[in-house]
Design a protein around this nucleic acid. Sequence first.
DNA 1: TATGAATGAGTGTTCATTCAT
DNA 2: AATGAATGAACACTCATTCAT
Lengths: 188, 188, 188, 188
Amino acid sequence: MMRKKDETKKVKIQDATAAIILKYGAAAVSTIKVAKKVGISQSNVYLYFKNKDDLLMSVYQRELAKIIATGDLTRISDATIPITERLRLYMKSIYDFALKNPESLTLIEQIKFLMGQSETNPLADQLNNNVVVSLLEEAMAANVIRSIPVNLVMAMVFAVVRADAMNPQSAGFDDFYHLIWNGIRATD
Amino acid sequence: MMRKKDETKKVKIQDATAAIILKYGAAAVSTIKVAKKVGISQSNVYLYFKNKDDLLMSVYQRELAKIIATGDLTRISDATIPITERLRLYMKSIYDFALKNPESLTLIEQIKFLMGQSETNPLADQLNNNVVVSLLEEAMAANVIRSIPVNLVMAMVFAVVRADAMNPQSAGFDDFYHLIWNGIRATD
Amino acid sequence: MMRKKDETKKVKIQDATAAIILKYGAAAVSTIKVAKKVGISQSNVYLYFKNKDDLLMSVYQRELAKIIATGDLTRISDATIPITERLRLYMKSIYDFALKNPESLTLIEQIKFLMGQSETNPLADQLNNNVVVSLLEEAMAANVIRSIPVNLVMAMVFAVVRADAMNPQSAGFDDFYHLIWNGIRATD
Amino acid sequence: MMRKKDETKKVKIQDATAAIILKYGAAAVSTIKVAKKVGISQSNVYLYFKNKDDLLMSVYQRELAKIIATGDLTRISDATIPITERLRLYMKSIYDFALKNPESLTLIEQIKFLMGQSETNPLADQLNNNVVVSLLEEAMAANVIRSIPVNLVMAMVFAVVRADAMNPQSAGFDDFYHLIWNGIRATD
DNA sequence: TATGAATGAGTGTTCATTCAT
DNA sequence: AATGAATGAACACTCATTCAT
């Protein structure tokens, strides 16, 4: 009960932070503005977050969690499904997520940008998700896709999906999939 | 290599700015830090640049100019050369540049990002260069590459090249080219 | 007399501002100097005032309120009192106030002047008080005083009272009243 | 010849200063802006004026000189002319000047405001002109006007003339004269 | 749990003034 | 006579963070 109240407030603070980022960019976030937006006192923020960095990181993690929650991870790592199918599944889930949650992508990008430079960069990019990395490595081993650095593939997927989601009219999943798949598939 | 005696003060300031961006990110740039790095007084910066924005823009333009200078634009728009060849040329020049000047890419990305948030965004993205856009559109019209939003293609090229250049060991141009080309080429 | 222990911080800041204006003029007011005078940190000023303008305006309003509080406005607009009597009342209250609070006049004049130049001039001159304007207009309509632009009359009253108050030895109310009254009264 | 050139430049600087004051107020004057307006280098200003204060003072004096030059001083102090006539002459010349040179009044007021506070106030107000003071004192001695502090009279004259000149439609000299004259004349 | 008060450091920017050329 | 370069001080304002209550 007491717990519930806290969580609400914490979430409100995160929401306000996210709203500011989306509207003015991550560099515009300040505890003052956040507090004002939530309607609490500035110092109150420090009850829920150790730092401004802590706050930003939490928002970052929250969005990341959304992505991970979206993908049907069980099926992606289900060995009984053919690997090409699973690759398609992976891309479909990313694509769907991006179209439905373009703001998540923006938030992640923004916060990454701002914190990326901080000398103490505690940003373990969980996008480089074990599941996905394993999937790609498995596909390469099976010679289903060409042997390319995994991060290259992921950068491509991410960049294209972002460009597509940000565009007023998206290109459609098939176009997206074609672009990626034909780029990485093993040519016989 | 850098910082020769005969460098003019303006260049020194730009260099210092670039160095800060590369080390701590564009958000960390401040006239104070720049001045301190150059060893001049803060107000001196305003003798050479109207604004902090002006300073950042000038660094941005400087890097952009390097890219443009690198690419063999005349050949890319030379109609006597087959279009597939010209596409390859375009990608080769981007690839080569990225490998040789990975910092340029970072600088451009950083400054673009930072100024992108500014409400008055005077950033005419000259990367979305007429030449390149024309090339891609021509290729689509000729059904050499698939009909995809131009910005999607460019986002992909840029992302992949960046990911590659940032990697300690690059994948090599052929892998890069293959990735892009097979993604966008028209399938018969 | 001033600066009692129980004065709230806000008042202390206003007092310091007023003191600076009186000693060095409104143009010399800076948040730094004010803070130093009060013995607080500069940023503390912004806890009590949104702006430097806000601070100045508040000092202005404070003095204005003193004037308004002094004048017996109810009697000045009391129609049962003969109009010549009410004109005399008006001038008496201004005169008395000026003699007792010469600093108020200086403060008002100074701040008015300074903010008058600011492009965003939020100065609704409440001295050009409806009550007084109405009184003068009524007197003109009744042909008790000559028909002259109201602002001319008020400028005259204000200038003379100020000159008198600033003088080491004042001329006395009767002289002041005579000067004004014979100037503006309708001649038969 | 060489001299001529200098004088031109000096005047140009004064003109630019005056223009800035009239447009943005005396507080907005800076050697930078002045120099830019004239089209010379900032440091050049210091060849013609010791200080910024010196510059402002010189503009002030220039306007003051205009006023003095306007009044027909010889006639005002000509004992063969009746004193009431000379008082009228004095007021007429002030009135005419104000109507023709409202900017002069503004300049004087502005600079006086700005420099008035400076601790070292070298402002010997030459408006308190011997001639005028003598005239008023003579008139008082002759019981032509009432015995009032001279500075009170002058403040009144100046305030009214200024209010009138600043007004879009002036009240006319007769109204002005009446206002003053009936205020100060000796009543029998 | 929550707040109000406080602050020191930092930000971009302007300015008067000096000096070597 | 004129300039370009330079600077230190000042300015308004914002911010992250702390602390006593």
